[in-house]
């Protein structure tokens, strides 16, 4: 593996909450164009890893390098501006604004106080919003107040709000939670489409869905990596079977 192809390199990452190590000297690498899924039982530290990468939680030890840039001492908005986008577990959208406005706010221009006052929604922004809306199956709902969207559509909207920023690393925390079967299929297709030209890190519980999208799977258990590889290898790993079915 050539070094330059690595988008994200996590080394010896540890975080402890009052002595409890939620993530324990974790080593993890993510390549370009890779769609990597992290699975694991409850409390394995999956969401904490995402929190650490995007700066919501500060690490106790270790390093997170994104394209050779150290993230652990950056503020949240600086990490985003470096090219890391993160979707939250429950759909986190601005309910009192329209779909269009949700996407407009997420457009990566006018991020300062004064530039936001001077911001103009020009041709470029408008066409980009429509392009993204089409991609996330919401082109007909642009003017709708986003509180009125279905749960699945809200999930898509939040993915769209990240896509419009064109991040090089996209992190999705349970993107298909609460979605119908058809919506899951559409989301799988969406994820396969958007992982080109960037890296995508997904946390998911739905194994059928994981099988459909994952290039590579990592199983996390008690803050450590239990197994890593393609879906088949992982599923047949006796340690993984023990963790999932043993108790």
């Amino acid at each position: 593996m050539k070094h330059k192809d690595i988008t994200l390199a996590i080394e010896d990452l540890t975080v402890s909450f009052d002595g409890f190590k939620a993530v324990d000297s974790l080593n993890f690498y993510l390549d370009q164009n890779e769609l990597h899924v992290v699975i694991g039982p409850n409390g394995a530290g999956k969401t904490t890893v995402l929190d650490l990468i995007c700066g919501k939680t500060k690490s106790t030890e270790g390093s997170i390098k994104f394209k050779d840039k150290e993230l652990t001492n950056l503020a949240e908005h600086e990490i985003v501006q470096a090219g890391v986008g993160r979707k939250f577990q429950t759909p986190s959208i601005y309910e009192n604004l329209s779909v269009y406005e949700n996407l407009e706010i997420s457009f990566p221009r006018g991020r300062g106080v004064f530039s936001s006052i001077a911001f103009k929604c020009d041709e470029e922004v408008d066409s980009r919003i429509k392009e993204v809306a089409k991609e996330i199956f919401l082109e007909e709902f642009l003017e709708m107040e986003s509180a009125l969207l279905s749960h699945g559509q809200k999930q898509w909207l939040e993915i769209g709000m990240l896509l419009i920023q064109d991040p090089e690393l996209l992190m999705l925390d349970e993107p298909v939670a609460g979605m119908s079967v058809k919506e899951r299929e559409q989301t799988a297709e969406l994820l396969n489409r958007i992982c080109v030209g960037r890296s995508v890190l997904v946390i998911e519980h739905d194994m059928d869905f994981v099988e459909r999208i994952a290039h590579k799977v990592t199983v996390l258990h008690q803050g450590k990596i239990l197994a890593e590889g393609d879906m088949k290898t992982v599923q047949n790993d006796p340690k993984v079977i023990e963790v999932y079915l043993g108790h």
């Binding site: 995007c54 919501k56 503020a75 949240e76 908005h77 985003v80 501006q81 986008g85 993160r86 939250f88 986190s92 959208i93 601005y94 309910e95 009192n96 604004l97 406005e101 407009e104 706010i105 997420s106 990566p108 006018g110 991020r111 300062g112 106080v113 936001s116 006052i117 001077a118 911001f119 929604c121 939040e158 709000m161 920023q165």
Partner: peptide, 30 residues
């Protein structure tokens, strides 16, 4: 001011401050 993107950002922050922060804005400056 309120009809600019700044105004919409204020509304967005009132609703989901974290989402604004993780969309690349320094919320405190606003």
């Amino acid at each position: 001011v309120l009809t600019s993107k700044f105004g919409r950002l204020l509304l967005a922050m009132k609703d989901k401050e974290d989402r604004v922060r993780f969309s690349g804005y320094d919320v405190s400056n606003f």
